[in-house]
């Protein structure tokens, strides 16, 4: 394992985020905080409890997950797309690094940024709504697994995209709707029976449910199913990336 090369990519990616600190950190924190203000403090006070949890506190895990998913995808996809766009990817592809090492460098950097953001948003949420975390270790585990899995997805999107429009397409048209419909703002028990079944095909449901379980000890599905699903998503993403490097898709003609 070429640790120096992995570290070099990691450090360069983190430095890029620090160069664009407003866009990378301040912007997602401000926008997520607005959700807490509007749905937590303002509207939330007029909504009754959901599953025994005050509404403001109920949406905290879902909103962190919303931010985590979008930021992980966005960070990782931009991280690999930008050198492809500028052409400087030649340097990475001609270096003595394996595909796994390239992925580790980009994906761990993207995941680190998302996890830091998640923790910042968690701290920010505590300023607006009172909440507790029953299983902090599980919460951290979910945070890390989700950030890594969706950074892997972002990496795939960054290789698939052949322009900035496509880069935005998946986060805007797929990730955000799935997250909104994945129980971020409600429990799936509140849906009609048919939609409850349909919702189970939404992978984000399992992430939000598991993450919420770590906070309040209850979720829409079992914590074990949630964990199993996130591990399966991660394996699927890794398999796709392996196929990309084997075929050279969009990287090596």
């Amino acid at each position: 394992m070429n640790v120096t090369s992995i570290k070099t990519i990691y450090v360069a990616e983190m430095a890029r985020s620090l160069r664009t600190v407003l866009q990378s950190i301040v912007s997602p924190v401000v926008s997520t905080s607005l959700y807490f203000v509007v749905f937590g403090s303002a509207i939330g006070t007029r909504i009754t409890q959901v599953e025994g949890v005050p509404y403001g506190a109920f949406i905290v895990p879902g909103l962190i997950m919303l931010m985590l998913l979008t930021q992980s995808v966005s960070n990782a996809s931009f991280g690999i797309f930008f050198p492809r766009f500028t052409g400087s990817i030649y340097e990475i592809l001609s270096a003595p690094i394996s595909p796994l090492e390239i992925v580790l460098g980009f994906v761990t950097a993207a995941a680190t940024k998302s996890i830091v953001l998640g923790l910042i948003v968690l701290a920010t949420a505590s300023l607006f709504v009172p909440f507790s975390i029953q299983h902090p270790a599980v919460m951290l585990l979910f945070l890390v697994l989700t950030a890594l899995t969706f950074s892997l997805l972002g990496f795939i999107i960054g290789i698939w995209a052949d322009g900035f429009e496509k880069l935005q397409l998946v986060p805007l048209l797929i990730i955000t709707p799935l997250t909104f419909l994945g129980g971020t703002f409600y429990s799936i028990d509140m849906l009609p029976p048919t939609w409850q079944v349909v919702t189970l095909f939404n992978p984000v449901v399992y992430l939000v449910s598991g993450f919420r379980w770590s906070f309040y000890g209850q979720g829409d599905v079992s914590i074990w199913i949630s964990l199993l699903m996130i591990v399966l998503f991660m394996l699927l993403a890794l398999l796709i990336i392996q196929a990309i490097f084997r075929s050279g898709y969009r990287l090596k003609p």
């Binding site: 070429n2 120096t4 090369s5 570290k7 070099t8 990519i9 450090v11 360069a12 430095a15 890029r16 160069r19 930008f82 050198p83 500028t86 052409g87 400087s88 030649y90 340097e91 990475i92 001609s94 270096a95 003595p96 690094i97």
Partner: peptide, 30 residues
């Protein structure tokens, strides 16, 4: 191998020092 490509491809916002140091690290050199 060291490669100088035909196109002027650079990480536009890096400094010269950072960019050249990045290349060294990428090849696993201390």
């Amino acid at each position: 191998i060291g490669l100088v490509p035909q196109e002027l491809t650079n990480e536009a916002f890096s400094t010269v020092w950072d960019s050249v140091s990045f290349s060294r690290g990428l090849f696993g050199k201390p």
